[in-house]
Design a protein around this nucleic acid. Structure first.
Lengths: 148, 148
DNA sequence: CTAAATGCAAATTGTTTGCAGAAAC
DNA sequence: GTTTCTGCAAACAATTTGCATTTAG
């Protein structure tokens, strides 16, 4: 089980990556996330302890994190990208189309089947994204109300 | 089974949508696609028969198609959006991370299981996206060569 | 001392919008 | 005739890059 600190060290040990205060702040803040962030979210958090950090540095650091395999970037349709730390166990997303709540889940069986399908097409899988869209329990109720 | 012409008619019958030459060209070209296109791809195709059509018109028409439920927009990581006609049977994507080849597939079992997982979380599903990333057969060979 | 990182502003890219003229209905 | 389109150019938003300066190793 890799801890946040492990990953942080792993990050700075990568070839010629220098250890600066702002990187430390960004990477640490990011790796502790359990949720998705936009660049602005992350920058805001980082600035609360390190004012003066610029957008460019966050973008650049996030790109590094992606390259090292510690961050995942996604686009849920709305303009801006969302980032999340790649955690030990992979998970997928259930997204409510009404209130935009996001629930994470994982399911071994589905993953196994994905593997099989990929093999049938000659692919060797390295990752995947799966998003299920629909109404969450609360919003189903709300929708039912509206119809009355 | 809805045909291209059915969908084309359906499109122009939508509330106050006017029937213009450029729309006809764009929509027809688009609905006949079996693959994904970028805006540029589509514009290029359309211009071969209707030169002078502008980007804006393609963007606007594609937005309409999305609203009417005839087009699907996605972002596979690279900057630009890809569009594809929504066909009768849903499918998912296998994407080669090296040559960017895209293979479509469908799998009933996985879909059934997605449904089940969603139910467990109280969700009522209306759609999903699933993308498997990895190396296609050809690129696996290429990669093997490189290592020698 | 040297190579790499920072912050800023300017540049780029993909997409959207305002508007005057042109078509559709 | 009125409303909806079109094409263009200008506007925008997200992200990237160039560069002078600072900082880590």
């Amino acid at each position: 089980m890799t801890s946040v600190t492990d990953n942080l060290n792993r990050f700075f040990e990568t070839n010629g990556v220098k250890h600066t205060a702002q990187r430390e702040a960004i990477v640490r803040e990011f790796l502790n996330l359990k949720e998705h962030v936009t660049i602005d979210d992350l920058l805001r958090r980082v600035r609360s302890s390190h004012p003066g950090v610029g957008y460019a540095t966050v973008y650049r650091t996030l790109r590094l994190l992606k390259e090292v395999g510690l961050a995942d970037e996604r686009h849920f349709g709305d303009g801006k990208a969302l980032y999340e730390p790649i955690s030990d166990h992979h998970h997928d997303h259930l997204i409510c189309t009404r209130c935009h709540k996001i629930v994470e889940f994982e399911n071994e069986e589905i993953e196994a089947m994905q593997e099989r399908v990929a093999n049938e097409h000659g692919f060797k899988i390295s990752g995947h994204k799966m998003e299920l869209y629909g109404l969450c329990a609360d919003c189903q109720k709300e929708e039912a109300k509206k119809k009355r």
